[in-house]
Each structure stands twice: as structure tokens, then as C-alpha cells.
């Protein structure tokens, strides 16, 4: 069975790769990628069941935070039922349910994500302050000084812009940072290339293999 999965994975992987270079195989490549997307959608359904299973277990075991788990499952089931009824109805009821669903998304999901984004700003500032306490070395000092210089060069200061900081910011972001970022991205690209090849050559098998 394992040999069969490896053979199927390698064959399909090579076919998709070949589709980029051989125009005759492009149609096959598109077809396989469409299948992959359908399978990914099916995986999302499995993922929802995984979520229910994890949080159901938390409630059953009365673990810490089980109230939130209960809230999550109630919200998930009620939103699903709400969406189902919305799909099955027509006319004025459908319009009303559409409005209610938009309110649910705009009133809960978007504000919650925006709140996390706001929290992220404070978290990043707090993290920068704690950096020297955790790791007081040259790299941390350079990191913090660079961040401070960029902030000073970007922020609107009460006494007007200081050309020194804006000049420094331009030099750091467009010369030093771009050079460093390109170096890192080349490394990441090489790593991705060899990782992909390992999977294609079946020496790494993230699909029920070794």
C-alpha cells in the first residue's frame, strides 16, 4: 500500500511539474490541480470534524477553558444550521436571512480579527521591550536600534521631520534591508527547491510513509 501511494504521488507530482515545461501536458496539470483543490475542500470538512472532536473532548473531560469550547461548538452548529436554512429558503425570508448572516460576519468575525490586529501592535511593542531582558547580545541591540531609527524616520514628529532620520531610514530599508532580505529569500528558495525534490524523489514522504 505504501509503495502504491508513493508511486501515485511521484507520478502525479512529476506530471504537474512537467506541465510547466511541456505545453502538451498543461491540460493534465490543470486537471490534477483542480482535483487537488476539490480534495482540499473535502479536507476542510474533515478539519471541522477535527475541531468538533478536540473541543468535544475538552468539554467531556471538563478541561480548562471548556466553556469557550462549548461556545465554539454552539456557534459552529448554529451558524451551519443558519446557513443551511438560508440556502433552502427563498423570497423575503431569504433576504432577511442574508442580512442576518452579513450582520453575523460584519459584527463578530471582522471586529474580532481587527481586535487581534490591534492587540498585535501592543504585543510587538512589548516584545521589543522584553528582547534585551531575554537576549542581551549585539544582534538584539542592532535589531532594536534599527527598529527605533526606522520608527523615527517614519513617524510624524511634533517638531517636524528630521532629514537625518528619513535619510537613514531610506538607506536602511532600501539598501541594507533589501540586500539582507534578498539573501534570506535566496536561501528560502533553495531550501524549498531541495525539499520539493526530496518529496518528488520519495525520500521524504509526508503521506503515510517514512
Amino acid at each position: 500500500m505504501r509503495v502504491l501511494t508513493a508511486v501515485i504521488a511521484i507520478a502525479f507530482g512529476l506530471l504537474v511539474l512537467a506541465g510547466y515545461f511541456i505545453p502538451a501536458l498543461h491540460e493534465w496539470q490543470t486537471l490534477l490541480l483542480n482535483w487537488a483543490m476539490i480534495l482540499a475542500a473535502a479536507a476542510a470538512i474533515v478539519g471541522v470534524f477535527n475541531l468538533i472532536s478536540v473541543h468535544g473532548e475538552k468539554i467531556r473531560q471538563r478541561e480548562k477553558g471548556n466553556l469557550y469550547s462549548a461556545l465554539l461548538i454552539i456557534s459552529l452548529v448554529s451558524t451551519f444550521l443558519f446557513g443551511l436554512v438560508q440556502y433552502l429558503t427563498q423570497g423575503a425570508v431569504r433576504v432577511l436571512l442574508d442580512d442576518l448572516m452579513s450582520t453575523l460576519v460584519n459584527g463578530i468575525i471582522f471586529p474580532a480579527e481587527a481586535m487581534l490586529m490591534g492587540l498585535l501592535t501592543v504585543t510587538l511593542l512589548y516584545t521589543a521591550i522584553r528582547l534585551l531582558r531575554r537576549r542581551a547580545n549585539l544582534m538584539s541591540i542592532v535589531f532594536l536600534i534599527t527598529a527605533a531609527l526606522i520608527l523615527l524616520g517614519t513617524a510624524t514628529l511634533p517638531f517636524g521631520d528630521m532629514p537625518v532620520f528619513s535619510g537613514l531610514r531610506t538607506f536602511i530599508t532600501q539598501t541594507l534591508a533589501v540586500g539582507g532580505a534578498r539573501g534570506i529569500l535566496i536561501g528560502v528558495a533553495l531550501g524549498t527547491l531541495t525539499t520539493g525534490l526530496r518529496v518528488l524523489l520519495a525520500t521524504d514522504r509526508p503521506y503515510g510513509g517514512k
Binding site: 510587538l124 521589543a128 535589531f143 534570506i184 536561501g187 528560502v188 533553495l190 531550501g191
Partner: peptide, 23 residues
Amino acid sequence: DDLTAQSILFAAGQDALIGEELY
């Protein structure tokens, strides 16, 4: 593999793997 996350993890974590060290 994301540059923003790398800088965040460098600051927020005890140790960070930079660039291709991930692989």
C-alpha cells in the same frame, strides 16, 4: 519562510532559525 515572521520570532522567541535554517 516569511520575512516579517522571521523578525518577529527573532524578537519574541528564545531562539530563531533564520532563512534556510528552517529547511
